[in-house]
Every structure is written in C-alpha cells, then in structure tokens.
Computed example of a mutant assay.
Amino acid sequence: MTEQTFFAQADATEWTELAPGNTRRVLIHTPDLMQVEFGFDKGAVGALHSHPHIQVSYVAEGSFEVTIDGVTEVVGQGGSFIVPSGLVHGVVALEKGRLIDVFTPHRADFL
C-alpha cells in the first residue's frame, strides 16, 4: 500500500505567483482529488480557461464576478460555484479575496 497523506498544515506549501495580484498554493491532493487556495488582489483576473477536471469553488474571502459558460454572476464570501468538465470559466476579484477550489481528478499541471 502506498503512503497516504491525510492532513496538511496551512504553512506546508508555498504560494506561487501566477500573475500580478494572483497567487496559488496546493493545499492537499490525492490522484483523485485536489484542494487549492487562490489569492486575489482587488481587480485581479483569473483568465477565462477550461480544463477536463470538475471544479467546485468556495469564496473564503471577498467577492468575485464569476463567468461560467458565458453566464456571469457575482458570488460573495460564503458562496460557492461548480464548473463542470470542459466549460470555459474565469473570475474577476471585485475586492481582495480568496477562493478554495477542489478539483477531481487532481490537477497534475499544478504539481
């Protein structure tokens, strides 16, 4: 049996700068599931993109203009959204904020 990681501490992973005002850190993952934290400065953009993974996102802080498959809605702190596999999506931070994203399967491109 392979070693399994059941726990992750907040300071266990480093932040990666993706673009000005936009950072990411992988919190924990298995081959089937991954949890990632994204930090955004006000006005920062998570550019429109798509991927084969299913994604669910929780707004831990701030508010975001979220676009999924051409539909845009503002999602504030405590809100969530789901992005089905293959749909084009992106966000704009309306204020400083953080998203907690979960992907299935894991995003190998983030490791």
Rank of each mutant, 00 (worst) to 15 (best):
P20E: 12
H29E: 14
P52V: 06
E61K: 15
A60H: 07
R25F: 03
S50Q: 15
Q35W: 00
G21T: 07
Q55N: 07
G39P: 05
N22M: 14
V66P: 05
H49C: 06
P20W: 02
E61C: 02
I28C: 09
E37H: 00
E65N: 11
F38A: 00
T16K: 11
L18W: 07
T23D: 05
G43Y: 10
Y58F: 14
G62C: 09
L27E: 10
H51N: 02
E17Y: 00
V66N: 07
D32N: 15
V56S: 12
E61I: 04
R24Q: 14
R24P: 02
K42V: 03
P20M: 06
V36W: 09
I54L: 04
I28H: 10
S63H: 09
A19F: 10
E37L: 09
P20G: 03
H29R: 15
R25T: 01
T16F: 02
Q55F: 01
A47N: 11
S63M: 08
V26K: 08
N22D: 03
T67S: 02
P31Y: 06
G39S: 14
G46C: 04
G43F: 08
R24H: 07
A47W: 00
I54R: 08
F40I: 05
G39F: 02
T23F: 10
A47M: 03
F64P: 07
Q55S: 01
D41N: 09
L27G: 03
E37V: 08
G21Q: 02
L27N: 11
T30H: 05
I54Y: 08
S50E: 13
E37Q: 10
S50T: 14
R24G: 09
E17N: 06
P31S: 09
G62S: 10
G62T: 11
V66W: 04
M34V: 11
H51M: 12
V45W: 01
H53N: 15
V45Y: 00
F64Q: 01
F64K: 05
G39K: 11
K42G: 05
L48A: 13
I28L: 15
L27V: 15
I28W: 12
V36L: 07
E37R: 10
E61W: 02
G62A: 10
F64T: 13
G46V: 08
V66K: 01
A60Q: 14
A47I: 01
L18D: 12
V26F: 04
V66G: 00
S57A: 14
L48Y: 00
R24Y: 02
D41K: 14
G39Q: 04
S57V: 08
V56I: 15
R24K: 14
F64H: 04
G21W: 07
V26L: 11
N22T: 08
G62W: 09
V36A: 12
E61P: 05
I54T: 14
H49K: 11
G62M: 08
T67H: 03
L48H: 12
G39L: 03
H51Q: 11
H29F: 08
E17V: 11
H49E: 12
G21M: 04
